[in-house]
């Protein structure tokens, strides 16, 4: 698609019609031109001069309008997926895996997740990525996009300390909704990154089940397990209470399994484990995808000017070559012997 930066310049375009009414070369009177032979080369030159004139003036006017090849994107076949990252923004994410405030070499769960996700995204150029976050309320951070700079800026904004509580259910609704809305072809996946879970209310459960039934997608849960908290795969000891209130992580896992979606849960209790889990997700989400690759806007003005320069040079050459039909060397009227 071609766009114009200064479309008003096209108002000068009638100038390009000058060669239709004016002649480039000086006239040379020749009687009864209609009785003289015509040759193809001459006719071509005749039309060629006109065309050069129109081209030269037209190209200059078009160049002044500053045309450009609209940037945008080209469809491109790549390996990746439509990925929605759902990030837990609760304040507990700012603690280390050991459950303490970060100090020295130990990094917080949030910063580890951020760093590893940055690398993950950088290594997958063909993914379309959307980012959602949740604490008490779900929030859409970045709609699905191919722009790496936008994704990087959204991930880097996760460095800010988190908020209060965790409402994973509504967050999942938002993320799955984003993934489901995505009209593009290719696989869809939702990666939930959280260090805890909460009870999902019955209405939200119904919404999630509906979403899962509408649109198949892969579901990953990267559970950042803090020291001392119970794992999601741990079976309760006989006699131990097993309610969603006491073991929300385990029950979220059971609920997600029940959605009948391809679902994988990873439990990571160290940055290294997070990296391994993310690599595993990356391996599983390598499918052909039709995505769009950004194409930078390209200026076309220089091309117009070049064409105009060539046309003007051609016209100059034509004038350099112009000659009269017959040299005006008039002989005397009378000659006497």
């Amino acid at each position: 698609m071609i766009g114009l930066t200064q479309p008003w310049a096209l108002a000068l375009l009638p100038l390009a019609a000058l060669p239709l009414f004016l002649r480039w070369l000086r006239a040379s009177a020749v009687p009864r031109l209609d009785l003289r032979p015509v040759d193809g080369a001459s006719r071509a030159v005749d039309h060629g001069l006109k065309a050069l004139g129109i081209l030269g003036l037209g190209a200059l006017v078009l160049g002044l309008a500053q045309p450009y090849l609209r940037g945008g994107s080209v469809v491109h076949r790549g390996i990746g997926t439509n990925l929605v990252l759902l990030i837990d923004r609760s304040s507990s994410m700012d603690d280390t895996f050991a459950g303490r405030s970060p100090s020295g070499a130990e990094e917080s769960k949030a910063s580890a997740a951020r760093r590893i996700l940055m690398d993950f995204i950088a290594g997958r150029p063909d993914d379309r990525i959307g980012i959602a976050a949740f604490s008490t309320a779900p929030m859409l951070v970045l709609p699905m996009t191919e722009s790496r700079s936008a994704i990087a800026s959204a991930v880097s904004a996760l460095a800010e300390p988190g908020l209060s509580q965790t409402d994973v259910g509504r967050g999942l609704t938002l993320a799955m909704g984003m993934a489901a809305q995505e009209a593009a072809t290719g696989a869809r996946a939702v990666v939930l990154v959280s260090d805890g879970a909460a009870v999902i209310s019955p209405e939200v459960q119904v919404m999630l089940r509906n979403l899962a039934a509408q649109q198949p997608m892969n579901l990953y849960w990267l559970y950042l397990r803090s020291k001392g908290s119970k794992g999601i795969f741990e079976q309760p000891q006989p006699g131990e209470a097993d309610t969603p209130q006491l073991r929300p992580e385990r029950h979220l896992h059971i609920f997600l399994q029940s959605l009948r979606l391809p679902y994988h849960a990873f439990e990571a209790d160290s940055p290294g484990a997070v990296e391994a889990a993310v690599a595993e997700i990356g391996r599983m989400e390598s499918r052909p995808i039709l995505t769009r690759r950004p194409v930078p806007r390209r200026e076309l003005g220089w091309l117009c000017y070049l064409i105009a320069a060539l046309a003007a040079a051609g016209l100059t050459a034509a004038r350099a070559l112009e000659r009269p039909w017959a040299e005006a060397r008039v002989k005397p009227l009378l000659v006497l012997p």
Binding site: L33, D39, A41
Partner: peptide, 22 residues
């Protein structure tokens, strides 16, 4: 006309029509 190479814009003085000649 002279055989010298060039471009001529011939004009018929009667009709005013012009035609370029190589």
């Amino acid at each position: 006309p002279a055989p010298r190479f060039g471009l001529i814009d011939a004009q018929d003085p009667e009709t005013g029509r012009r035609r370029t000649q190589l």
